[in-house]
Amino acid sequence: MSKPMVRIHNTETDEIIDREMNDEEYLVYLAEQAVFEKEQSAIEKANADKAALLERLGITADEAKLLLG
């Protein structure tokens, strides 16, 4: 499987190189993807938990704000 492409622009010479990530860059990329996906999962879980709680209480998000305000 091919690795993601990256662009390198040397502003001193104005040279632009488009190439695949090398192994080191790819490892960093995968680690960052994992962090992002973990963050997204946490956000989605929090939103789902919130919606479930509101449904159990039988109130809307705006009504919950009024209660907590």
């Binding site: 993601p4 492409m5 990256v6 662009r7 390198i8 622009h9 040397n10 502003t11 001193e12 010479t13 104005d14 632009i16 488009d18 990530m21 990329y29």
Partner: peptide, 18 residues
């Protein structure tokens, strides 16, 4: 203005900044 670069791929490295 030091440089103008088009975004493409997964990342864009802008090097040798004045």
């Amino acid at each position: 203005l030091l440089s103008t670069t088009t975004l493409t791929g997964s990342s864009v490295t802008i090097s040798s900044i004045n």
